[in-house]
Amino acid sequence: MTATDAYEGMIAETVVYPGADGELIHAYLARPAGPGPFPAVVLAHHMPGWDAWYKEATRKMAYHGYVALAPDLYCRAGHGEPDDIAALVRSQGGVPDPQVVGDLAGGAAFLRALPYTSGKVGVMGTCSGGRHAYLAACLSDAFDACADLWGGHVVMGEADLTPNRPVAPIDYTERLSCPLLGLFGELDKAPTPEQVAQHEAALTAAGKPYEFHMYPDAGHGFFYHDRPAAYRAEQAVDGWKKLFAFFGQHLG
């Protein structure tokens, strides 16, 4: 926490960097003012898109001392109001997993090249972004820590596989390349507590470092203060503390 008489500043702006296949995509970058070196985090946005909550979360990470980058994972679908772009992507069955992994790993490379970063980069995401963060931590070696916040469809049956999501992320668990934090709600339907337990069993069997926390009286999206039905203040406050403790341990 910054002392009341200390200088404090933040820079937050849209940037462009090479994502999957070197294609330039937009991202929202927030960073503390100063020379650093600061640890960094890539944020994988949720299914509703590159929206206000994600930009707030990106600035929150910067307030806590991270250079935070939230790529527009729907950038190739075009531009307009975030909800219109999200609806378009929804009608297309989402974005391809390999493309998202390339965008997130490209974000890590972009962050490491900045003169004010420390070289340590984490990845985090909520909802579909939690699933994407986990995939990126398994399918690349770009990250030093991964936080999966209620990512659904890490465990997938054959019937759930689609051309955009051809492999269940749990099947990549052997390849997880960094410590994992998972935050989940007991009332969630995607992932269910049973699916979280299945994921936990796979991590244990593979000998991977992880910590999972299952919150009672919370469902999907319990951090989302702009969603009164989903928001759980007590669980969210504790979840943010656990997230910062985890990143502090592995990226600090």
């Binding site: 299914m47 898109g49 909800d83 609806a87 378009l88 929804r90 009608s91 909802c127 469902g219 009164p228």
Partner: peptide, 28 residues
């Protein structure tokens, strides 16, 4: 386009969403 998924505006965890579209005009 019909989907049952996380809504973009309504305060439900999931909603039945229907987008009526003129393909030439786009989703906006």
């Amino acid at each position: 386009h019909i989907a049952y998924d996380h809504p973009l505006h309504s305060d439900y965890e999931h909603a039945l969403m229907i987008d009526f579209v003129n393909g030439g005009a786009g989703f906006g």
